[in-house]
């Protein structure tokens, strides 16, 4: 085998093993699987059994309250990963010298970070498919009518939230502060996604704010896709802007130790 080819194979296998290791660690860490998948799934099942929620939402374009909860819980999953799982793990790695130790290997710490992102992304994909599946088969909620539009909106939302997670990691001085910032961000973000009050039921001012928050924008785009059209430009651009801005600031300020 030519040298370069074998080297490329080694490289590939190092990255692949790193992704595998980080995914295993994410599962062992339990925050992602438990709070990011288990908890919203239970919520989904409970809410699905409440018949009052099967009435259409005023201004919800024909969707019922429960229909709206499905995308809200998909966003709940992304928000947990971005505010609890990712920053706590990465800030912990930095605090404990894991990233520093990686700097002395040929692989380098950037790939640990990438592997963490991939692992969290994988958990998010599993969660999204699972939630849509359970809502569909268990409670008869149809898939988003505009599937490619939904997929695009979800990808942008995932990118925006993981970028927010990176930003928290970059700005927090340690693991403790990262967890604290994440928790403080989680609740307002989920509020604006409509976890407690659907966005269409919010007072006008809050509704306007909601459209420009990451989860509010994500919710807007998802709702469009559920109603059968390609998501409108504003929420998509909002999500893309969060992804680009947060990621660039995070990269600019990121410290490996």
């Amino acid at each position: 085998m030519p040298m370069s080819a074998s080297k490329t194979a080694e490289r590939g296998s190092a990255t692949w093993r790193l992704i595998k290791a980080e995914s295993t660690l994410c599962v062992r860490d339990k925050v992602g699987p438990l709070w990011g998948i288990g908890f919203p799934l239970i919520l989904l099942v409970i809410l699905g059994s409440v018949s009052d929620l099967r009435t259409p939402v005023e201004g919800g374009g024909g969707l019922t309250y429960f229909d709206l909860y499905v995308p809200v819980l998909v966003l709940f999953n992304l928000a947990i990963l971005a505010t609890a799982s990712l920053p706590t793990t990465l800030a912990g790695y930095r605090e404990n010298g894991v990233l520093r130790r990686m700097r002395t290997t040929p692989v380098g710490p950037a790939r640990v970070l990438a592997a963490q992102l991939v692992a969290n992304f994988a958990i998010a994909v599993v969660a999204m498919v699972l939630f849509l599946g359970v809502a569909g088969f268990g409670f008869g909620v149809g898939l988003p009518e505009h599937l490619p539009g939904f997929a695009l909106a979800w990808l942008l939302a995932a990118a925006a939230l993981l970028a927010i997670g990176l930003l928290i990691t970059a700005l927090a001085p340690g693991r403790g502060p990262a967890t604290a910032i994440g928790t403080v961000l989680f609740f307002p973000m989920m509020f604006f996604a409509g976890l407690w009050v659907p966005i269409s039921q919010m007072p006008p001012l809050l509704r306007d704010i909601a459209h420009y928050t990451p989860l509010g924008a994500g919710m807007g785009a998802f709702q469009d896709a559920y109603q059968g059209h390609f998501p409108s430009v504003v929420p998509l651009l909002t999500l893309a802007a969060y992804a680009v801005v947060c990621a660039s600031v995070a990269i600019r300020w990121f410290r490996w130790e």
Binding site: E10, A21, N96, V98
Partner: peptide, 29 residues
Amino acid sequence: TRRLGVQLQAGHLPERLQVAEALELYSSF
């Protein structure tokens, strides 16, 4: 980094990584 092995005075691994997993992972680097 390919030719230099380093033991840091203070250097750590992820808390939940197992010993064999760590060695296998690092050897793949």
